[in-house]
Amino acid sequence: MPNEPTVRTEETPARIETRPGDRVVLDNRGIQRALARIAHEVVERNEDLSNLYLVAIPNGGVPLARRLAASLEKIAEQDVLVGVLDTTLYRDDLVASGERPALRRTEMPSMVDGRIVILVDDVAKTGRTIRAAMDALMDFGRPSRVQVVALIDRGHRELPIKIDYVGKNIPTHPQETVELRGYDGSDDDPLEVVVHAEVEDAAS
């Protein structure tokens, strides 16, 4: 069983499954630190914090947006709105994919008109998800400003989209996958970011 060459850290929860070819690039503590820094950057760049509206892109964006909101609430001493916006119905690759992708939850508890919307995603790559999210967002109203948080920016952009707040830049090979793992529906789930490369001789 060739599943040794994986970097495990102290905080890596046992229940996150490890596969051959996995490389942990950010553990739970690292994620927490990155979000705390991003929270300060958000405060620095936006004067009117009462107008903030964090909109998570499921699934990975959901726990990150909640944690970011908690950090912001501590700094700003006021409540921060959090919504969830699925981008699947706005994707530009639905024709190409054979099996239809499963839809995910959308919960937008408040109007976006006039608000500073901060989209929160786990991994930014091509920029196509952010493009879809912006289109979806506009169907909910007219935000005064839209900014983007990505915990991981792995490059390979295909659209002219800039990430405003990056947790960590991770140069990757396009064929590798980068995933946020550990989210199971609860905010307390320890998370980690894993780079996964297909191991050619995994079975040998």
Binding site: D86, L89, Y90, L94, R100, A102, L103, R104, R105, T106, E107, D135, A136, D139, F140, G141
Partner: peptide, 23 residues
């Protein structure tokens, strides 16, 4: 089940102010 689950999400589209998606 897959159809019912998808329908549940489509219901949310029907509750929006703009009840239209570009799919």
């Amino acid at each position: 089940w897959k159809i019912l689950e998808t329908a549940e999400h489509m219901q949310e589209v029907g509750r929006r102010d703009i009840k239209k998606v570009p799919t």
